[in-house]
Design a binder for these strands. Structure first.
Lengths: 200, 200, 200, 200
DNA sequence: AATGAATGAGCATTCATTCAT
DNA sequence: TATGAATGAATGCTCATTCAT
């Protein structure tokens, strides 16, 4: 960037967010700084502090955007789409023998897609999500993520179960990421299926 | 501490680790530095770099020890102990109607204890996860914790279910911590109970 | 303030000055910036740089105005007003035994009022002194304040004594502010009274 | 300074203080920063933050040292020394007609010396002194200055008067510095003399 | 006339690590 | 063996000021 030049750069703000997400993806949240974001976005340092008063502001913006991307990935997932296309109850009125099992299978497939797609991507999402542990500013965004996901599942079961499914998927995903274990879709399907049966 | 005095302090190394755990518990991993640990342990800065050549050395030592402490807390938990003391099948030969429900209740209580006891403590544990996400060096520690927990549960169910229980507990705990929601023991009990019924 | 709206705000300049005075009162001269003034006045940053090309322009304007306010406070002070309303020489023609004592009392009360009224306000006045020490541009303002005060006192004594009274009041006020000592009105009265007696 | 070399430099701490005093003398307190002090002392930036955790610490150290220098100047002043050498009360028991006048003269001379000696020096002292207005950390040092000065005068009068004398000298000095007026020793002598006569 | 955006300089502070003692 | 001192890098952040709109 030529020094002294002032660039006309509308969506610079957006580009800084994108850069921040890239930095977090590559170096982790600990690697995100005004400076690293500025360098990645090829903007002067002052530009990042101008658009994001504090680093937390930038982090929140990044998490929010990552969230949206994730939500879209969920909504657009082939796995869930298949469910909807599922053959309607057959003529004789009997619903498919075990509709829960189908949802379990679909979610297991979805989880597999998410985990398998792009390791960096999923790590980024978990990291931003987990960062809320220590940064209260991120909690609302994390909570919103949970709720959005649960809300997407609720129509196919009940709200309580939906929340539990999210917890299970979070837990399984975490174990896969942290223990360097391959994702076992059958196992996930089984576990999710249990979740879908009332215990009483 | 009087300057210039050299203290006879045989377990200084251990005390530095303890201090580091306290610091991580209070300020997070990002808050751990040679300096913060030295201050917390009331030892000179040089002492921390002497005993732990790099900061990562200290971090790993601290997390390992925290892990052990956590494992002990689990093993020694009143909730699990009660289970063991559980009345044997009664005279008429009928086992308790639903032994799984009892385990679910015990685990729900255990989780409540862990979450309720000391916010800093439990945040510390979860932060171990977060850190392992980005630092492969910590993955073995994280994996070990998962396995230890699962192993503790396995005798009361089967290995696969045990692992699932851990995932569920992780997921629920995470949601509580990240969304500032109060822990709902009844909900957890219900969810865990479902986990304990075979889906077939 | 809705973005994009342009407010019809005729005395914005004045409002920025007022805000600047408030900022200096609360945070000191060092705390005055285009930004802090803009925030306090609830105007956009650009507005402050538009009305005051440099920060010094704003500072001088603010201090000048503060000075005027202070002068008015002195002139309108109940303490001095009482003096004027002072009962005329009593019937027997003897003036009050010691008119100087009365002036001393009035000034002591005035000083008490000034010091007690608003810490921020009085700190602001003294900070003008501090600043003038290093910024010759402010000296005239400081000098003007001294002279205005002395001029207000001169009619009740003589010019030389008036100047001395100002010095004494400055010195006492300074000690109160700098040493966190409570203002002792009786002490001030005594000291001022001595000032009012010719030494010869 | 050759990079990479580590200098053995005992009294570096002291040299930083000296440099800070020089910086304040030249550029005012506002011009003092870790960086400016480091540059003036020709030490790396980190060195100033090592020896003085915060900038206030450095400022306090500087003020303290300036104070000491000032106290020495007072104690060693020829003006006060003359007083001590003053002929003892003469044989017939009559003390000198007006001992107060002598003290007043001596103090006026002292003030003249202090003000006249080195403008930068005296500005520095006033600035550090006045800075206590906004920086509570400096208040104790400023208070100590007052007390030390008053204590030095007390033996020659009474404590209350001593304190008043300090106030008067402060006030006069301030006026001289701020209004660009020449110091008028006769005027000061007169004012101080009035201070030395009980008003009753 | 008014202002949002931009930018380079600067600041206090923290830090991991090294080294002389 | 300990440890105080040292140091260069980095960080978050604030700022005065300029400029395009």
């Amino acid at each position: 960037m030529a020094p002294g030049t002032r660039r006309y750069d509308p969506d610079r703000r957006q580009r800084i967010i994108d850069a921040a997400i890239r930095v977090v993806g590559e170096r982790g949240i600990a690697g995100l700084s005004h400076r690293s974001a500025a360098a990645e976005a090829d903007v002067p340092l002052g530009s990042t502090t101008y658009h994001f008063k504090t680093l937390d502001d930038l982090l929140v913006a990044a998490l929010q955007q990552a969230n949206e991307g994730f939500a879209q990935a969920v909504e657009g997932s082939a796995a869930l789409a298949d469910l909807d296309r599922e053959p309607a109850p057959d003529g004789d009125g009997t619903p498919s023998a075990d509709p829960g099992a189908d949802l379990a299978g679909a979610l297991a497939r979805l989880l597999g897609e998410l985990l398998g797609a792009d390791r960096g991507r999923v790590e980024l999402e978990y990291e931003l999500y987990l960062a809320a542990l220590r940064r209260p500013a991120l909690r609302p965004v994390a909570a919103q993520w949970c709720e959005a996901f649960a809300a997407a599942l609720a129509p196919r079961t009940d709200p309580v179960t939906a929340r539990a499914l999210v917890a299970v998927m979070d837990g399984i995903g975490l174990q896969v990421l942290l223990t360097d274990t391959a994702y076992d879709e059958a196992y996930a399907r089984e576990v999710l299926a249990r979740m879908l049966r009332p215990s009483s």
